[in-house]
Design a protein around this nucleic acid. Structure first.
Lengths: 396, 396
DNA sequence: TAACTTTTATTAATGCTTAAATTATTTGTT
DNA sequence: AACAAATAATTTAAGCATTAATAAAAGTTA
């Protein structure tokens, strides 16, 4: 690993961060176990935890079982040390969540976005949501460690700029991170929605313990990717990485909203499933109101065993399988998380996609990669935003 | 970034490593400039360079221009501090190179592999090459810092095990790193061929200065990928990453040697170009000896403007463009290096591939990614192996 | 030659981790 | 209830590395 210059101050900061992360990971842990996990000596642990106690970031909470001697004093994060806000923005909604320092959700707030084209109006709404959730929980701005935004890609994760999401008309190069920070006066972080999700899954969901986690969020409209290495978001250079939805899975396939053809998003999102079902039905001569078939109908139909609906979803799963296999081939993760509303709705989509991944003739290890569905639903992005804030809290 | 426990010893090691890398990067550099580059103070630089001088890893070499005061004493790596060996193994050849501590190539050695299926025989040959190159240059084993192997994927880069390369019959789960280390008694490192290449490009070629470099090696037979983040090889979890050649670019495309269909390797390697040319010619009614057309013929034909040959190569370039665009979408590199013998031979292949990357309607940043051809040819893997050794030389 | 600049080396101070010794607390045994 | 053993946590002195300030060395300019 490439390190930059290290001195005593930095050394201490790194070790302290290590202690904090370990406490966060274990929830409650004794100083003894901290020495084991961090490889620091008991003296150092005493020093560092002492300082953390004094700054109220952690607290002593009860004691553990005796192992034949003195009972260990357990340490935990101090929930009242401060707060974090997570906020996801998508084309139709703003999801906002407030958590304490331990990451426990205190309150949630949800607002529909009227016209996504009304950029300034939407930004006003975001700020209003933040103000409102603080007001109604009586939280002072000074007590908030940060705001974690989850925004649509493509996103410049170095500068915090929304580049040009196809569904966000009029949002070209919007420095959303700086705008929200300036408007609220609160330190703000921003990540692409799926990157945010996977960090949330790591801290608060099932992702803990894996070294390389890839997440695919499959929505009715969009498809996004996220990737974590050792608990850190894999960032791109200047531009956003993990643009899974606009990788081409089928050459000369369906036109995509992005201007290309055959993107995974065009071939395997929820709308594609609906389209496959419709096309098949009209092809077989059935008539009547089929134009109004919805994704829920297709999912329900598949669940009930309707052949057309099963085919439609299996088709999406096939394309997903191909693209994910390609991603596995490049990234070699040890876990894959399946999120997004379409994925959450359809058991079949998950099963068929994983089936495809488990049956590759050559990348036999793809079968050994852990695969599971995301722990969080619609608020995954906001929860990830909270994780972003707490994770970034390193300047102790 | 995730750090592990740091103490004084580790701190010093990291800073010393930093100094070494900076010296290696600049070739010759004064202590003053080292303080600027490493952000360490003059006192620390004096200490660390002192130790490095005493251990003969670096040496003073002349002085730089005066800037109005005392002339700076220049420091450089001591070429005689030790040696590194790089060795690439592919289906037909063993390429071996010996370098001094500065990375200057002292000698090269090349041997054809008779039967790749004869695993033990090939391993014997590898060891013999290493012995021979040391013998004829009068280098003692004890003076060799390490051997860097460049081997075919899929490769378990954690354990140094060749998993199951399709062209390597009988090579299932061969712990090549440990075998060579045990047989030679020299510390051995191993990387997948293209990963090795890109590290070589970073240290000794044009890759320096880029934060995220993706390399695509396009050969007559295989296609491989490599990726560097901040000068470090991007490793997978348990299994090899960057298996570019076996990502699917065309659903239900040509059967691939790996058992899948439509892999990039099956659609865009040199043999594919030959096939496209042949198919087109026989389709157009031409006859006579066309079965014996070679890749060189196709490349030369394209260079001369032959429409069929141009088409054949453009077809490969198109597939390469699609797969590389997908990789860019996921990895967001700031530079792409094009290597491999097919790529080295054909100017058209390079031009058309980059053209494709520069014209994406959505990933506009793909056009801004620096693209260049690899600096090294057939011995890129071996040079990369040397880079691996010198790069890994951290336990100072 | 003297004044000045730049580069390098030295020294005392500071701050961190570490190892070893010590104190504190709990359990089990007599 | 007293005591020994075991485990947990703290204290202390020592070692080490960086830093900041200062000194020394070497070259330039007037």
């Amino acid at each position: 690993m490439q390190y930059s210059r290290i001195n005593n101050k930095k050394m201490k900061s790194i070790n302290k961060q290590n202690v904090m992360n370990t406490i966060r990971k274990f929830g409650k842990i004794s100083r003894k176990d901290l020495t084991k996990r961090t490889k620091l000596t008991t003296g150092t642990i005493t020093n560092l935890t002492d300082e953390l106690l004094k700054s109220k970031l952690i607290q002593e909470k009860g004691s553990g079982e005796s192992e034949g001697g003195r009972k260990p004093i357990l340490l935990e994060l101090n929930p009242r040390a401060g707060y974090a806000i997570g906020l996801e923005l998508n084309t139709s909604q703003i999801w906002c969540a407030l958590s304490d320092f331990k990451g426990e959700i205190i309150d949630k707030l949800h607002e529909r976005v009227g016209f996504i084209e009304d950029r300034d109006g939407v930004i006003d709404s975001m700020v209003a949501c933040i103000d409102e959730i603080l007001r109604r929980n009586n939280v002072d701005k000074a007590a908030v460690f940060g705001i974690g935004l989850a925004v649509p890609g493509p996103f410049n994760d170095q500068k915090g700029v929304i580049v040009n999401p196809p569904n966000f008309r009029g949002w070209h190069n919007v420095p959303i991170r700086d705008i929200i920070e300036e408007r609220t006066g609160i330190k703000t972080y921003a990540e692409k929605e799926t990157q945010s999700s996977v960090l949330g899954e790591y801290w608060f969901g099932l992702g803990n313990g894996y070294k390389r986690i890839f997440q695919a969020n499959v929505y009715e409209i969009g498809i996004g990717g996220g990737f974590l290495v050792d608990g850190n978001i894999f960032h791109g250079d200047r531009f956003c990485s993990m643009e899974l939805g606009h990788t081409v899975v089928k050459i000369d396939g369906r036109p995509c909203i992005c201007g290309s053809r055959g993107c995974l998003e065009a071939q395997a999102n929820g709308l594609a499933a609906v389209r496959y079902a419709r096309e098949s039905r009209s092809g077989s001569g059935a008539l009547g109101g089929l134009d109004e078939i919805s994704l829920d109908d297709v999912v329900a139909g598949a669940e009930a065993g309707d052949a057309v609906c099963v085919m439609a979803i299996e088709k999406c799963a096939y394309y997903l399988g191909v693209s994910l296999m390609n991603a596995i081939g490049l990234l070699a993760p040890d876990a894959i998380v399946f999120g997004g509303d379409f994925m959450a709705k359809s058991r079949l989509l998950f099963e068929k996609t994983t089936e495809h991944l488990n049956s590759h003739p050559y990348f036999i290890h793809a079968g050994e990669v852990k695969k599971f569905r995301a722990s969080f639903g619609i608020d995954a992005g906001a929860i990830g935003g909270i994780a972003t804030v707490l994770n970034a809290f390193s300047e102790i």
